[in-house]
Design a protein around this nucleic acid. Structure first.
Lengths: 131, 131
DNA sequence: TTCCTTGCAAATCGTTTGCATAATG
DNA sequence: CATTATGCAAACGATTTGCAAGGAA
């Protein structure tokens, strides 16, 4: 199935590029709608899925029950704050090595990897100190 | 809230201990029901959530839209076969080290980590060879 | 007796989908 | 013109929840 241009998809992708906080479909929807009020949530979902399937963006599941999307497709990990729900990037230099080790141990073919750390972010730690 | 014994919870936990394939809530339900026909799906969900919250089991999200549960709470990774949907364990010796590195880079407090590899498992590779 | 747990069914909520119409190539 | 994309609303499916009744401490 060939892909045709659509302004909606372009805006969704552009929006995602401006954000480093891994927005959910709903957040994308709400933001794009400010510039393009007629866009529907279904279209947002369809395009996020299309972009993710083509590898142009990443779909993340961090355990809060909602999918998050990331325009940064380079190898990196994520951190999820169980207190405020924020999802942040985390660069670790051992990912390639890890993938190699995993591939050695496995009889199958490993194509990708996803790592997420869980805990409490700096902001939330500070807040709990104040009390 | 204190936890009281329940036969249902015990059976759910016992069942999970016998399995290494990371069953979903529905699989747990169907299996436990064979020995205890009156158990309801709601009870299964409630208990899986309770056990996971108390750290007695692990709740995994591998990206297939369904939660999987694991009675093995030791540090290990998972592999998800995008072809057949199987979830298998994977031991990697660099997890501790990775957590330490991540903790160094982070201003927050990291409590846990979850890593999943994606690809095609041995069985599915073989099957696609046959053709 | 007190409080936790259950079964049941209805509700929730993120996501997907069918359809008629609009836009792209 | 053929095909892909859209908006809308309805459908879906996994999970959660309210409630009255049952069971554990």
């Amino acid at each position: 199935m060939a892909v045709k241009y659509s302004r909606q998809r372009q805006m969704i992708y552009n929006f995602l590029m401006t954000r480093k906080d891994h927005p959910t479909a709903d957040v994308v929807y709400r933001n794009v709608r400010q510039e393009y009020p007629n866009i529907s949530l279904g279209t947002v979902y369809r395009n996020l899925t299309l972009l993710a399937d083509r590898g142009e963006i990443l779909r993340l599941q961090v355990g809060d029950g909602v999918d998050h999307f990331d325009a940064d497709t380079s190898k990196h990990c994520h951190f999820f704050c169980s207190s405020c729900g924020a999802v942040t990037d985390m660069q670790l230099d051992c990912l390639e090595e890890m993938l190699a080790k995993a591939q050695q141990k496995s009889q199958g073919r490993i194509e990708s990897q996803s790592t997420c750390f869980y805990g409490t972010c700096e902001k939330c730690l500070d807040k709990s100190m104040e009390k």
